[in-house]
Design a protein around this nucleic acid. Structure first.
Lengths: 265, 265
DNA sequence: CACGAAGCGGAGATACCGCCTCCGCTGCGG
DNA sequence: CCGCAGCGGAGGCGGTATCTCCGCTTCGTG
């Protein structure tokens, strides 16, 4: 998780003295906690969450990092760079088809396993400039991956470079959805999509991951009911103090004007 | 949009008198507005939004519908039923492969074009019971669709019925993401996935929709930056009144502890 | 027409939540 | 041992969503 260098942490701001030992220890704890929290729960986790996870007070977090945005930027900078690096490495592979597949797999793996990175890369809030820059760097590389595979004849001709980010997005969505139950499920659908990307084939290749069971799908739904994505849907808490006979009125209103003829439960 | 019966609206709650004419008109306006708002912006739209769209005050909405949950339940009941009906109709088709494809297409079309329905079906908040019931009804039908196509030999053998909801979910995700720019883009990826689902084939079929341009992807990102899904990410507003020299401290903190070695902008 | 009642609007009460600050206390290290 | 860097976390602030309340409007009936 924490791929960041520990040694570089004794940084300097205009050559100021280093942090006190306990302070530096806390700083590392915060970095570690922030990585975990933002990766697992996404960028809408609060700095209070990070502080709790780190076992420190919020004040400590804010003393070290001026605000949430800065912390996020610092945490994700190298992960964004890694996305570009992965594309370039893939491009260096000799086999065009393998190169493309490998890139898809690495990109999807990064995004599916990291909700924060996914939000950063796909939604233009927060680190706009950094992400835009990374995207700009990736574009020609991805185009080359696609063109090479098409020139080779393995990739269907109507495939386009812009299909890549959307495919990755879809896979990451599936990964996020079922992540709590089967974090690797996206690989199954990558397999399916890859078979759809081939210019020609006899039979399907083997799907790498078994499908979810109905119960697992149920679990995924429930997992989403609680936090994150569908967060706002918890809006069903009852503010009212039930002044008179509100409950009965509800039942009445529900019965009345009932149009969808189906029996309710 | 409003497929609901207008005539049934003169309902009765213990045989009470019907609404005054203007009141009934407003009720219809609210229903219509709610359909539009929840469909387009999702279930996290507020009843104030609905009221504004309907051209009435919030009070009027709350006089007609005891709370948001009730309104949502009433609005989406028949759309949920429709999901089941679509599965059953598809099952009635003679050609097993066509039946399966047709179901996928209809299901994806419903969910991709209706953010509210998608949230309702995929996230277990809100209309739990209703949705669970619908799901339960659909399951055997979907299984049958899959089994028939596999028996026929057109569908790959390692495909599973539970792959269907996840594929639909992925397509709907793509549809939501790029919906403001190219609402039909999910059809392109359905085409890709369908080709991947075949037991065997010579060459790829034709993808039904052109890929997005890089600019369109950019637009999609931006569209999400504003509202809905990435709503919470707007947390970058600065509450502080910049007490002293906060800005400069920020710059310092950013430089200091800088680990991801890349140049910033 | 006139008048009672049904209906309306929307400001605002109430409740939450997330970011960030402030200040009295703690404990490090010279 | 003592000064000061560092700490914790209650709470200020701003924002937002749900739902209420009450003075005014409009309907429709006698």
């Amino acid at each position: 998780m924490t791929s960041r260098a520990e040694g570089a942490a004794v940084g300097d701001c205009r050559g100021e003295r280093p942090l006190r030992r306990d302070a530096e220890r806390n700083r590392q704890r915060i970095l570690h906690a922030a990585t975990e929290v933002f990766t697992q729960r996404g960028l809408d986790a609060t700095l209070d969450d990070v502080a709790r996870q780190a076992g420190v007070g919020v004040g400590t977090v804010y003393r070290r990092f001026p605000d949430k945005e800065t912390l996020v930027a610092e945490l994700f900078q190298d992960r964004i760079d890694a996305m570009v690096a992965v594309a370039e490495q893939a491009c260096a592979a000799p086999d065009p088809w393998q190169a493309l597949i490998s890139y898809l797999e690495h990109a999807a793996a990064s995004m599916a396993g990291d909700l924060g990175l996914r939000q950063l890369m796909m939604f233009a809030t927060y680190g706009k400039d950094r992400v835009a820059y990374a995207r700009e760097q990736m574009r020609p590389v991805v185009s080359k991956l696609v063109e090479r595979a098409q020139a080779e004849g393995t990739l269907r001709q109507d495939f386009r470079p812009t299909d890549i980010p959307l495919i990755v997005f879809m896979l990451a969505s599936a990964g996020e959805y079922a992540g709590s139950v089967q974090p690797d499920i996206w690989r199954r659908y990558l397999g399916l999509i890859i078979d759809g990307m081939r210019a020609a084939r006899g039979g399907p290749s083997e799907l790498p991951v078994p499908a979810l069971s109905p119960g697992e799908i149920e679990q995924s739904m429930r997992a989403h009911g609680q936090r994150s994505s569908a967060r706002r849907l918890k809006e069903m808490h009852v503010h009212s103090r039930f002044p008179a006979d509100r409950a009965s009125w509800r039942a009445c209103a529900l019965e009345k004007r009932n149009i969808g003829a189906i029996d309710r439960n």
